[in-house]
Design a protein around this nucleic acid. Structure first.
Length: 422
DNA sequence: TCTGGGGTCCTAGGACCC
DNA sequence: TCTGGGGTCCTAGGACCC
């Protein structure tokens, strides 16, 4: 019988906070949090901040007392820095194990097939030490037979030691883990399982298949099988093609005029189209949505509309034209809008775009010109900073733009902001 | 009077993830 | 005063067809 596959989950500890600490050692041993766009919600917490009871994803203003009382260090998020640090961590991991799935910005699954079990713990420890030494980022590593069990092991590793290896016969660890801490169990499932007396990961593993299928569908059944050590989720080494691209933001203040919403939507489409071209894709379907403030007792108008384009495109001005048409459809005067967004779906590789049968010679020439313009636009913005060249419809003043009051410098991605020594 | 059933495609909504 | 953003997958139900 072949040995079961062995999966390691490498998870960066408190990733955004750890990135900030690499460049600002004064943040060590102190409570630190990182905030989302517009400094709205807490998206990362140091262990010290967690110990103070600051929850994940809570609005900043709800923990302001704690911040003040304990001198919590507060930072705006700096995604350019985190993406760059993530890349560095992944490159170190690839040196240890080329069979790797980049699962998220701060996590990777590694296939450790072929390692004998008694060496797994040492090997994981050496990965951990090397990542810390070469990048400054602390990681935890969980090792097990399946992805879901490796996630469980990762949870255990974070309790201390940094590495945890569990086997399918281990019951103690599963019994010590709340069902809501299992990968794939969110608040809704945790509640319904709890009502049936299933409180721990071990109880979930022992639950009846039919019951699970009924409560949580096929996804839930797969999850339980994985907890039993039966692999249902493969390591995805080749990045799967993107299904959609979204760009949406809450404004820094409420907007009611159509002109301002048009600026915002234009600039979101511009960003989405840049992502599209970076992936060498074109889009057939575009959705625009607007939202009022759901947290306030004010008149609400949440609406979205979708347009199917006559032909797949990656050209910014074509997409802006389509998006503004959508916006005119859903905009209603007299509401205070808090957020808007653009979603691109039905993506196709740009090389496979079917030429429209009814396209004449003129249109073909226009497409060639548009392609050259987009290439020039992207290279100028890459060279001189994003937003150097932009469409007038995106506005000039843009007082609604997302705010980052406490952002750290782009230490690693901008020469002008390199940290100085001495 | 009698009021099918199965397949496919699409969409909206729910649940989850980081 | 102040509440993120970007994804995935599955399912139920309606429309439509034969």
């Amino acid at each position: 019988m072949p040995a079961p596959p062995i999966i390691a989950l490498v998870d960066c500890n408190n990733f955004y906070v750890s990135c900030e600490r690499v460049f600002a050692p004064r943040l060590e041993h102190r409570p630190v949090i990182v905030l989302s766009n517009n400094d709205g919600c807490v998206v990362a917490r140091s262990n010290e901040a967690k110990a103070l009871g600051i929850g994940m994803a809570v609005p900043e203003f709800t923990v302001r007392q704690i911040i003040k009382k304990h001198d919590v260090q507060v930072l705006s998020s700096n995604y350019a820095l985190y993406a760059d640090m993530s890349q560095r961590v992944m490159e170190v991991l690839e040196q240890f194990c080329p069979d790797l799935e980049r699962y998220s910005i701060d996590e990777a699954f590694l296939s450790l097939n072929g390692f004998r079990s008694r060496h797994l713990c040492e090997y994981a420890q050496s990965i951990r030490a090397t990542v810390k030494q070469w990048t400054g980022i602390p990681v935890s590593i969980g090792v097990a037979d399946t992805k879901t069990l490796a996630k469980v092991a990762g949870r255990i590793a974070k309790r201390g030691g940094g590495v945890s290896v569990i086997t399918r016969s281990d019951e103690k660890e599963l019994a010590s883990l709340s069902v809501s801490d299992v990968w794939g169990i969110g608040p809704a499932y945790a509640r319904s399982l709890g009502q049936h007396g299933i409180m721990t990961a071990l109880q979930l593993r022992q639950a009846d298949n039919q019951f699970i299928k009924k409560q949580m569908g096929i996804v839930g059944l797969r999850l339980v099988m994985e907890l039993r050590g039966i692999a249902c989720l493969e390591l995805e080494q080749c990045p799967v093609p993107k299904q959609g691209i979204t760009c949406s933001r809450a404004f820094s203040r409420m907007l009611s005029s159509r002109d301002e919403l048009e600026e915002a939507v234009s600039s979101y489409v511009t960003r989405a189209a840049e992502k599209l071209r970076a992936e060498h894709l074109a889009v057939r379907r575009l959705t625009v949505f607007v939202q009022t403030n759901e947290f306030k007792n004010v008149p609400q108008h949440n609406a979205s509309t979708t347009l199917r384009l006559p032909m797949a495109t990656d050209t910014t001005h074509e997409l802006i034209r389509a998006a503004l048409a959508c916006l005119r459809n859903i905009y209603r005067k007299g509401f205070e809008y808090r957020k808007a967004g653009v979603m691109l779906t039905e993506l196709v590789p740009i090389g496979q775009v079917q030429a429209d049968l009814f396209d004449g010679q003129d249109t073909t020439q226009n497409r060639g010109r548009a392609r050259k313009l987009m290439t020039a636009l992207d290279s100028v913005n890459a060279r001189f900073g994003s937003g150097t060249l932009q469409y007038a419809s995106s506005g000039i003043e843009r007082t609604w733009k997302t705010q980052f009051q406490k952002r750290s410098p782009a230490y690693t991605t901008d020469w002008k902001q390199l940290p100085l020594v001495g």
